[in-house]
Amino acid sequence: MSKRIEVRDLDVYYGKFHAVNQVNLTVQPRTVTAFIGPSGCGKSTVLRTLNRMHEVIPGAYCTGQVLLDGTDLYAPGVDPVAVRRIVGMVFQRPNPFPSMSIYDNVASGLKLNGERNKQVLDEAVETALKGANLWKEVKDRLDKAGMGLSGGQQQRLCIARAIAVKPEVLLMDEPCSALDPISTLAVEDLIHELKESYTVVIVTHNMQQAARVSDETAFFNLKAQGEPGHLVEIGPTEQIFHNPTQQATEDYITGRFG
């Protein structure tokens, strides 16, 4: 249920704008990898290329390869819809489906895959909500609107929705930036548990968070506004935060970033 991701010679463009230049990195299965870096450095963009979500923006395209256990996601004939069914994603702002109950939100991915068996759905919803540490809070009101939950609960609902389909990889794009500290803690605890089953890649602006939750950290930077972002270095989180090989990384980590 978890796969290795290899990114090779990845360049991403938004129309004529060259957003990301030559990224090469590997993400091991059952680990948490954090992408950090200043705004505009392309970390979210790279994350979105891992499930082809960047293509949603008109004019966006990329060159290079993204291999999921050796299979190129950009090979001709690959269906982006199929890619997104095995590479799940959680967004910055909680986005449960409006006018859908908690149950239906979690079951929505399975229903897209054609699952209609009530018993299978019931079990999958319970497993996913337990996996997202939300079961205890919502088990008595599964038929209530997902929008009625608090922000932190909504985000865990979205995580449950993403893991209900048992993806190979879970991408998280600043999943805690709209949450209060207590909800953030709940989601971070959850990320620790998720890596037992999934390959997790998380983009975060919060360096303490990267240090707390990740095994590996990738630091992205850009030379100047308007220049493409690039990967400065990737390595074990411990090393990146305490003994980085690049001066730029050290400047960023220590806050001497100008």
Partner: peptide
């Protein structure tokens, strides 16, 4: 329709019609 909701549906592997059904129609009903 909020972009986040549409992207939420897309990220689950929804086709265009499924995005419409999951995100756009409930929002605009």
């Amino acid at each position: 329709t909020p972009r986040e909701t549409i992207e939420g549906a897309l990220a689950l592997g929804a086709t265009r019609w499924e995005v419409t059904r999951l995100a756009v129609l409930p929002y605009g009903r």
